[in-house]
Amino acid sequence: MKLAPITFLLTLTLSPFIQATPAVEELFTQYRQKGIQEFSADLGKNLYFQEFKLAGTGEIRQCADCHTPDLRAQGQHAETGKIIEPLAPSINRQRLLDIKEINKWLKRNCKWTLGRECTAQEKGNLLTFIQTQ
């Protein structure tokens, strides 16, 4: 295959940018221990843009409400209007570095957006998607 060397080179060049941080690596290990085999950036992306109807009020919510559809952009808290720094690690180096921080926000934001906690599979997918950004 003529393309093989190019693909190989591209992978080499790009791999530093999609390397999981030690914190995310540790979380992946925890999720695998719960029996999750693989994580998918595509499914993570789907979840990020999925709309959830809130029981009771019928309000529609999705991650992008606050984080915007472009993870490289600054977001805004839906209620308080406070600026949320970009989720994309390529833009915001502070992202995905701290396990406690990641767990805190995944818990809160899954509950707010989906109306329940995310499963280990969903969290793994989301993190996989976010780290490619």
Partner: peptide, 11 residues
């Protein structure tokens, strides 16, 4: 867990 309509749970 219901902080004026938002989830603000902490450890």
């Amino acid at each position: 867990d219901n902080h004026f309509g938002d989830n603000a749970e902490l450890e």
